[in-house]
Design a protein around this nucleic acid. Sequence first.
DNA 1: GTGATTTGTTAATCTACATGAATGCATAGG
DNA 2: CCTATGCATTCATGTAGATTAACAAATCAC
Lengths: 179, 179
Amino acid sequence: MENINEILSLDSKENTSNFSKGDILQREGENCSKAFFVKKGLIRSYTIDNKGKEHVFMFAPEKWVIADIESQEFNQPAKLFIDCVEASEVIILDRRLLFKSDLNIDQLKNNVNLLSRRVAVLQRRVIMLMSASAKDRYELFLETYPKIPNRVPQRMIASYLGITPQALSTLRGEIARKK
Amino acid sequence: MENINEILSLDSKENTSNFSKGDILQREGENCSKAFFVKKGLIRSYTIDNKGKEHVFMFAPEKWVIADIESQEFNQPAKLFIDCVEASEVIILDRRLLFKSDLNIDQLKNNVNLLSRRVAVLQRRVIMLMSASAKDRYELFLETYPKIPNRVPQRMIASYLGITPQALSTLRGEIARKK
DNA sequence: GTGATTTGTTAATCTACATGAATGCATAGG
DNA sequence: CCTATGCATTCATGTAGATTAACAAATCAC
């Protein structure tokens, strides 16, 4: 969701809110018509499975948008939690504003591009999850989010990769030893 | 990509082509501006990793659309192969027609919805790949594609699930024994 | 039809990663 | 300041699924 000119132009019409580290913007089960644009800080979305285990779906550093598109699209209560990894400044957008209202052709084309980009990123992630080892996935994470590894606790990175913090620790140990 | 009225309306302007089982519609490395709408039959997309192993990305039975959106979006040569699991009748669409040309507002809104749906499906698949066991993934596959399990070779289902054919065979054995 | 290749199944062994527990550090609250 | 809780790391052990191999059934080529 890199092209953000349009979103920023909505800034004046929408609220910018400030949140502290750990604040929860959306809980599982809630009605979720909101999307969150990160002006400053770092937020993440995640599920909690039936064994109580967290699975980080994505991180959103500055200028990224985060939303529970699956639940919105199927008109279901939220499947994802969204909370702040750092203190953050967030523009809260109504999803209907982004996708449904009386936008003009250029805005709609822009949205088509935003969504295509999102599909592309997810396609890559699915292929990666199916075919790559934990080490390869860690390396792709570093590429995808080059600026955030030192801002995110190890356990969240592990959760994003689909492995345990212990496995990530061992992995990092091996990588460090090789260099 | 369930809402297909618009696509079907393009039918007359576009070519319908017939393919035999095994025919390849797109190869890795090719320029890929096409999307494929399946009128009849069954096609799939997949990657081949650097160890020569296939990973099925998705199946497209009747009325589904398949395309390598990642490569198109980033203007790269195709990452995905696309071929026919069964003899198929396919409408070949130019991606630019679907996403880029002078469409009217309703058509663009429709495309936004198609892409949102696609994002939603991929979000679900990512979460599933991260958190679910092979057995759970198999059950979700049966839900996602209720009509095709008997039309697709086991090895392709295994590949879609991210496991080996042997593991799937054992799994199916266990499920059958329990019933 | 016949032989050859591909497919699905079962079983033995191997391995990447999970799980559980112990330890040293850090950060937070009183 | 001290204690408590959480976090990262390491190690011992467990396990889901990979790998390899063998074989039967199905499909393909001719």
